[in-house]
Amino acid sequence: MGPFSRVSRARLILALLVLTAVTLMTLDTRGTGPIATARNSLLSVLSPFRSAAEWATDPIGDVWNGIVHFDELEEENAELRAELDQVRGDEVREITDREVLEQLLNATEITFADDVEQVAARVVAGPASSFEETVTIDKGSDQGIAEGMAVVTGAGFVGRVERVTSNRSVVLLLTDAEMRVAARLVTTQGLGRVEGRGPRQSPVVELLADEQAAVGEILQTSGLEGSLYPPGIPIGRIVSIPGSNVADADAEGDDDATTPTTTGGSTVIPDLAPVGTVRAELEPYARLDQLNFVTVLVWSPQS
């Protein structure tokens, strides 16, 4: 084979491979069955090898993280000691706090999907890339899990099942930038949408501008008809309201309309005409960076 034909052959192979990749992407994006099936089958086959490799190389990761994150570990240790001291000191108050919490739960009707079938699962792997916020759990379609199902911990909403194999599922976390959850304010029942913003960033909730949003307010899944998730799952609480992107608010010359005021110890966005949205930062109740066990709610919008 001469040099020219070798170059032509290499280009031909490149073109074929690029075309194949583009075709795969197109079919996958359109949700074509065989591609998803093939991908999940491969995941099913490779996952046990990954688990075995992770088990075998566990000490390497631990040593590295011990070296690189030594300062953070020391800080965390100090924080934990302080927390422990506080817990000891607060033992007396605990009973009262529990009663208050129960009252809050009763008042806010957070039933937490106790009438929904649940599958407990263990987190066996983190994300395969820093571009996404996912975890892999050790349960799959054999246990009744399907794509789109909500995943929770005892604390609240974790994410949704993104992909399923017979014995593994990939869960897209609440913090992933692709995540959207219809939400409801517990106090006013105002509707909003929680959006993930990617790694290392708090999710935000987007509320209609005429909703009163206060720091500390609790959000739960909306339970609207056709909603993807069961109603009443705690998502998180509002920790800050950086401002609002209310259209025409400045044009009306009403500074108060966009300036948070303080009422009763909490920051409150005053009533606004429904001409825009308010975005507030959210702290998820579930500790998404320390997930060990989760629960999948075997629930679909049709059920």
């Binding site: 075709t23 992407m25 994006t29 591609i35 991908r39 395969a128 571009f131 992909r163």
Partner: peptide, 13 residues
């Protein structure tokens, strides 16, 4: 790509 949630074939491309 098998382990990612991005479109299947993106990394391959």
């Amino acid at each position: 790509d098998v382990f990612l949630t991005t479109p299947f074939g993106l990394t391959a491309l």
